[in-house]
């Protein structure tokens, strides 16, 4: 928006308030970084990576988080794209009713479904494996994926479908060769969002991964707190770990902010 809403004097007053607000805003960052340098200074960071923390390897938690994010994102994109394409371009029994039922599941709070998921995962022998979290995250995010991708497919011309069928292509071929390539921008947005959400997820890995070697980075925030004592040296190390655990967020922000923004806002506020 390139437009002069305020005159120069007003702008100056506003910027004073803005910078004051930013200063308060920085306080939590300041807290974490200052505490992380307590007692041993930068050594706290070096120690995190060179020695293991009571049997927890920080790099291991990042690896677990990455594997879960990749797995659930792959499930989400493949299942979501197939279903969204069908809801948008195919005709079949009770299509809209099924679609609305799927959308309603947008509301399911994770904690409500924890006990049945625990029971189901135990019976599928997936409890305490990364698959437990991969599947549960995919299930809880799929309604959003279907909503977002269907909006996108609805926007692609149906004429492509007709010309494909005149050329003798099956529905699957039309999907794979025409619509899937066209929906890559939406899939990228959704994929980046899903990776971020998976990395932020706390409740599901907390519940379904109890083995120390399975910890994810976000759950490690909580586990490490219990492992470190209250001595200043421990507090320094713990805060250094927190700063390190915040880094993926900074990386996602730096490289993928555009995809996240258009993913979250797509279809929601446009008029």
């Amino acid at each position: 928006m390139n437009f002069a809403l305020a005159n120069r004097k007003q702008k100056r007053i506003i910027s004073v308030f803005l910078y004051a607000f930013a200063l308060v805003w920085l306080f939590p960052f300041y807290t974490a970084i200052r505490n992380s340098l307590k007692v041993n200074g930068f050594r706290n960071y070096v120690d995190l990576f060179t020695s293991d923390l009571n049997g927890i390897s920080l790099m291991g938690t990042f690896r677990n988080s990455a594997l879960i994010a990749i797995g659930s994102t792959f499930l989400l994109l493949s299942i979501g794209a197939l279903a969204a394409f069908a809801f948008s371009k195919l005709r079949f029994f009770a299509k809209e009713a099924i679609y609305v039922s799927v959308l309603l599941c947008l509301a399911v709070p994770g904690v409500v479904i924890l006990i049945p998921f625990y029971y189901i995962l135990k019976n599928l022998d997936l409890y305490n494996t990364l698959w437990a979290v991969i599947f549960s995250e995919a299930v809880l995010t799929l309604p959003f994926a279907v909503l977002m991708l269907r909006n996108y497919y609805d926007n692609l011309p149906p004429e492509l479908m007709e010309s494909a069928s005149i050329d003798g292509a099956s529905k699957l071929q039309a999907f794979i060769h025409i619509y899937l390539p066209l929906s890559i921008p939406a899939l990228i947005n959704l994929g980046v969002l899903s990776i971020m959400w998976s990395f932020q997820d706390f409740l599901l890995p907390l519940m379904f991964l109890t083995d120390k070697s399975m910890l994810t980075a976000t759950v490690a925030v909580n586990t490490l707190k219990g492992l470190f004592g209250f001595s200043p040296a421990d507090l320094g190390k713990f805060n250094a770990a927190l700063v390190v655990l915040g880094m993926p967020g900074v990386v996602i922000f730096t490289f993928a902010r555009k995809f996240i923004t258009s993913g979250i806002t797509s279809g929601a506020v446009k008029d």
């Binding site: 939590p28 974490a32 971020m196 990395f199 706390f202 976000t218 759950v219 909580n222 967020g249 900074v250």
Partner: peptide, 11 residues
């Protein structure tokens, strides 16, 4: 862009 768990812990 950061995990809410991390923010809650820092707070």
């Amino acid at each position: 862009f950061m995990p809410l768990a991390l923010i809650a812990m820092v707070f």
